[in-house]
């Protein structure tokens, strides 16, 4: 069987093989699992944004932290402050979730995952993509992925706020299961944030003479070690933030009500 199919003379010089891929392994599992997990996360996040049971003293659901308006319970406000005052009455998640969401959306790991799982560009290595044209991140809108480092700066702040929430829970309810869930989540979120490629670049990756900047070089080596686990941290912290958020909401709704909850 002679196989011929081509779109250009140059392309015709390549081996004309009709099959999109000759891979025999389960290459479709990664994009499929990615699609399912990320879709589940998006569905949960959408629900959580509009759910108003985000605080039960001393627990603050991560998807609604920080609270910055007077419509939030007084204990839930960051440092007791409400810079957005009375006019903002929507759920607090709408106000701030864009920052961590933007951080994850532009994250180098997530880009790989959703380009494969959602955009099929490509679905897997050596598997033909369905698109006729490709310009990648060289043009609008994907050139905006270069804003990642600014989301990283915001994620540092959000990570510190989640750590502060966990410390407050520890102070007021050290034996609570929710406290330890929030602490674990804060640690994972901050590790994920610090393992970011932009963080690696900012510490010292942009330099060409490490030897002239020993402190920055040391920071770079630490971040580089974390960076090697960036994918794992991205996924684990995604599950931890979803789990911690759900747990607090279930306690707030009274669905979880055992004594050390």
């Amino acid at each position: 069987m002679t196989q011929t199919a081509a779109d250009s003379p140059a392309r015709r010089q390549r081996a004309q093989i009709k099959e999109r891929t000759l891979r025999t392994d389960q290459w479709w599992r990664y994009p499929l699992v990615t699609f399912i997990i990320f879709t589940a996360f998006l569905v949960y996040a959408t629900w959580a944004i509009f759910d108003m049971d985000y605080f039960v003293s001393p627990y603050h659901a991560p998807f609604a932290s920080p609270c910055l308006a007077t419509s939030c319970p007084e204990e839930a406000r960051l440092f007791g402050l409400a810079p957005f005052g009375d006019w903002y009455t929507w759920p607090p998640g709408i106000l701030i979730l864009g920052l961590p969401a933007g951080f994850r959306f532009t994250c180098y790991y997530y880009r790989k995952a959703y380009y494969r799982g959602f955009w099929l560009s490509p679905p897997a290595c050596a598997v033909g993509e369905p698109h006729r044209k490709y310009t990648g991140e060289s043009r609008f809108p994907l050139i905006l992925q270069n804003v990642h480092r600014y989301f990283f700066y915001a994620a540092i702040v959000i990570g510190l706020i989640l750590a502060y929430d966990a410390v407050l829970a520890l102070v007021h309810k050290p034996g609570g299961l929710g406290t330890w869930i929030l602490i674990a989540n804060a640690i994972l979120i901050n590790l994920y944030t610090l393992s970011c490629h932009s963080c690696r670049h900012i510490t010292a990756g942009r330099l060409t003479h490490f030897s002239r900047h020993p402190v920055r070089y040391k920071a770079w080596t630490v971040v580089s070690k974390l960076n090697a686990k960036h994918q794992e941290l991205a996924l684990v912290s995604m599950f931890s933030v979803m789990g911690a958020d759900l747990y607090v909401r279930l306690v707030a709704k009274g669905i979880i009500s055992f004594p050390f909850a």
Binding site: Y108, K112, Y115, S121, P122, C125, G136, E137, S138, I143
Partner: peptide, 25 residues
Amino acid sequence: GYCNITKCCTEVCPEHIKITDNALI
């Protein structure tokens, strides 16, 4: 800018060079 960091180059490298993480990104 064409690179969308899907890491296939890293996956196939027989020398296990972290092309994407250590060079392209």
